[in-house]
Design a protein around this nucleic acid. Sequence first.
DNA 1: ACAGTTTGTCAAGTATATTTTACATATTGA
DNA 2: TCAATATGTAAAATATACTTGACAAACTGT
Lengths: 67, 67
Amino acid sequence: MGKNLKLKAARAALDMSQQKLAEAVSVSRQTINAIENGDYNPTVNLCIAICKTLGKTLDELFWESEE
Amino acid sequence: MGKNLKLKAARAALDMSQQKLAEAVSVSRQTINAIENGDYNPTVNLCIAICKTLGKTLDELFWESEE
DNA sequence: ACAGTTTGTCAAGTATATTTTACATATTGA
DNA sequence: TCAATATGTAAAATATACTTGACAAACTGT
């Protein structure tokens, strides 16, 4: 499925660990890790929560990144 | 969870039935119906497929529409 | 008034997103 | 050199997205 490097970059730009992002959106660290590594296909509500936490939109982080 | 009226409107603008949209993105009609009625929370890959079929982006159809 | 299509919904099953626990490795700072 | 933090990964369990089949109500065109 391809890694989500845009997500990884947006998180890094805020100096935020996978752990912290996971806590901020109330999922496990493994879930964030799996999304970044393209291991699966998150729900749109989780994507929205991630975007809001990182100050980005769906199009910026999740458009053209999956298949 | 609130209805997704933007999706319903985008589909109507193309004069496309729930059935046809479902076939185009390879899910059941009930799944499209449930998404429009806010009965659940689709995966982002399904959202992307719907957007591409309807000529819209994620931000246009799924941003600020869920919670 | 009737046939065909569209939509809403429900119940039972299957596929998969997500959790929990756990372990290994790499990196950073004291 | 050591402790702490960050990341990658795996297996078993749970929650929920999605399917299939089915029925009813609303709308459309004839």
